[in-house]
């Protein structure tokens, strides 16, 4: 460790011949993993498309049971957190350890806010009995209303799990930043978690209008 800057030099793993090769492998691996994430969520979106085509009126009614205000608030949280994530990578590239750490912290807190709002939303749904068919006791005109809420909980639930995993990754990054492992020569994990975070963001960009803003 360099005592003056607190930076730990990164060593290339033994089976790679250069740090560029190592970075290329990490990048490609992450992108391929994100492709699997896209398809994983994609299945739910296909289910959504089919059901919406079958019951258009029910979806319009169901969306009126959701609060677009809370949804918009969450969208703002998530988009802003994507921005702070970018800024933390940028800080690492500029060797600014403190700034990198604080940007990660803000990202983490914004994610926590997202989950907080989500919890409020879920609580409201529980209160009104707007749940999947097993426990559905809500009031609505459409007969197939439970179908929407099954889908709603599956989609936002899976997305929420991804946010929680992302929060775990952010904690891991904060610890490593504190240790001084990221600097202009090595910040691969930061960039890869960043990519993951943007895809989670991307999913929400689709989810929010498709669930909350149906007309």
């Amino acid at each position: 460790m360099d005592s003056a800057t607190g930076i730990k030099q990164h060593h290339v793993a033994h089976h790679f011949s250069s740090s560029a090769q190592e970075f290329e492998a990490a990048k490609l691996g992450t992108l391929v993993f994100l492709v699997t994430e896209v398809l994983f969520f994609g299945g739910l979106f296909v289910g959504y498309a089919i059901l919406r085509m079958m019951y258009p009126a029910m979806f319009v009614e169901a969306a009126s049971h959701l609060s677009w205000q809370l949804g918009l608030l969450n969208t703002i949280f998530l988009i802003t957190s994507a921005f702070t994530m970018i800024m933390s990578v940028r800080s690492a590239q500029l060797n600014k350890r403190q700034a990198c750490f604080y940007f990660l912290l803000i990202t983490f807190l914004l994610a926590a806010c997202f989950m907080g709002v989500k919890a409020i939303e879920y609580a409201q749904k529980f209160e009104h009995g707007l749940l999947p068919a097993m426990w559905f006791s809500g009031e609505g005109v459409a007969e197939t209303l439970p179908l929407f809420f099954g889908l709603y909980f599956a989609m936002t639930g899976l997305h929420g799990i991804h946010i929680i995993v992302g929060m775990g990754l952010l904690i891991w990054l904060m610890i490593r930043t504190r240790r001084g492992e990221f600097y202009s020569g090595y910040f691969t994990p930061l960039e890869m978690v960043g990519l993951y975070w943007h895809v989670v963001d991307l999913v929400w960009i689709f989810l929010f209008p498709l669930l909350y803003l149906i007309r």
Partner: peptide, 8 residues
């Protein structure tokens, strides 16, 4: 577990 109904 919860009968979301997509396939039901």
């Amino acid at each position: 577990v919860a009968k979301i109904g997509i396939f039901d």
